[in-house]
Design a protein around this nucleic acid. Structure first.
Length: 111
DNA sequence: CCGTTGACGCCAT
DNA sequence: TATGGCGCCAACG
């Protein structure tokens, strides 16, 4: 068994565990995986997540709760629309109650 | 093969 | 408080 699975795959696993109506940040995922400074790689993994339909990339935003990656979806409105469909309030590409809907894998999951 | 870019985040000034 | 630069890993040209 190799402990060092692909970083991308690990990211997908965590993102898939994000409960409906909750969101997380790239840094939170990276930190959970033990690569707090590799937050960029998490975002890159999200870009490749288009192959995995089970990866709700729309539930992953930056640390500011800003939908920075919305433009990478099928349509720029897909991300905010999907979030609002789950009860998350989005205004001007920014999650309003971000602190309330924020889901920290470190808190909910055990490493 | 080398250089640049990217859905980010933290530190320094 | 705000702005700029660096780091990290992988993919693309």
């Amino acid at each position: 068994m190799k402990e060092k699975n692909d970083f991308f795959d690990q990211v997908y696993q965590v993102v898939r565990l994000i409960p409906k109506g909750r969101v997380t940040s790239y840094g939170a995922i990276a930190k959970y995986l033990g690569a707090a400074k590799s937050s960029r790689v998490v975002g890159y993994a999200m870009n490749a997540s288009h192959e995995m339909e089970d990866v709700p990339a729309h539930r992953v935003v930056n640390r500011n709760g800003l939908l920075t990656g919305k433009m990478h979806f099928k349509t720029p409105d897909t991300m905010e629309t999907s979030l609002e469909a789950e009860g998350i309030k989005v205004k001007n590409d920014q999650i309003q109650n971000f602190k309330e809907v924020f889901w920290d894998p470190m808190e909910e999951l055990e490493i």
